[in-house]
Design a protein around this nucleic acid. Structure first.
Lengths: 160, 160
DNA sequence: CGCCATTAGGAATATTTATGCAATATGAAA
DNA sequence: TTTCATATTGCATAAATATTCCTAATGGCG
């Protein structure tokens, strides 16, 4: 049962882990993980997360997460002002500032969904994000206060 | 009326030129171009070409070609320090400076083709670009003049 | 030519997804 | 707490898309 956010997060995980070809199937999987909702709710959930169905090489249409990045990068920031998660969400690993940028490392595959969530929160001072597979690059507005941005990001990354 | 292949090609063209949100709408456009078919045929056509519907930044689900790089549209709008499209009809959404970088936001799927184009123009002062799905990051040479760079970029963005 | 296999496509229908409405829950403000 | 606003969700149904079934048209090939 749990709450909506954990359901959304679970949906993202399921979508990225296995081939889901319709909402009925997604419903089954969610049930097996303790979530009980109707197809109507799933339709709304998917729309909210901008999830869509695209064809794979075999022509099967499967649900996929949005904002899949085309590039992967590696970062090597310094860590004096970073965050380390106690109860990491989204496979969060680390966060470091470098110049007017933030580099967030995640477990493989998690970067884009975290980027999606950060984008959705419209954090002031964050001009944009680019996500690879396990690295998320955020560009900050000039004059941004690092502590302030960190304070705003922390609940998004860690909470729940 | 013509043959199937020219219809398929026309569909591809329409999809990449305008925002099509359902098969009914596509049907209208095809009619206006002299093709007369039913929704059933369109469904088959779209499947054959692996076309799918994905959400744009505003949450509207639109048909897109399987290869995002094929999306080529035109950009309009430009502005003061940065450039921003007040009513973004094309891929370009906004441009902002931050330190020695520029962040360009585009509609989903457009960033990489814009990056490609900018790279090809060898704009002096632009060291390199990296693109995600809807965000393009450009790294500028130190001491670059913003107005100068903007002046060089504008025609590229607008003429896309 | 006649015969068969293949392809294309319409009409009707099935399947899948989205939504209007109403009920309940949650949260904020007084 | 009470009240008002907003969010969440299910149910029923609408809308959108896919498919089944059938007919025609086409192209070898003997």
């Amino acid at each position: 049962m749990k709450n909506k956010n954990s359901r959304l997060e679970t949906i993202r995980l399921i979508i990225s882990e296995q081939d889901i070809k319709n909402q009925e199937q997604l419903l089954q999987v969610l049930n097996s993980r303790g979530f009980s909702v109707t197809q109507a709710t799933l339709s709304r959930d998917l729309k909210k997360m901008k999830i869509s169905k695209v064809a794979n090489t075999y022509g099967d249409y499967l649900y996929v997460l949005p904002n899949h990045a085309l590039l992967q990068k590696k970062a090597n920031g310094l860590a004096s002002e970073g965050i380390s998660a106690s109860q990491p969400r989204y496979g969060f690993v680390s966060l470091n500032f470098s110049g007017n940028m933030i580099v967030i490392k995640t477990k493989p595959g998690y970067a884009s969904s975290l980027a999606y969530d950060i984008d959705n929160h419209n954090v002031p001072g964050v001009l944009g994000t680019i996500a690879g597979d396990d690295t998320l690059l955020m560009v900050l507005a000039e004059g941004s206060n690092r502590q302030e941005i960190k304070r705003l990001l922390e609940p998004i990354i860690i909470s729940l």
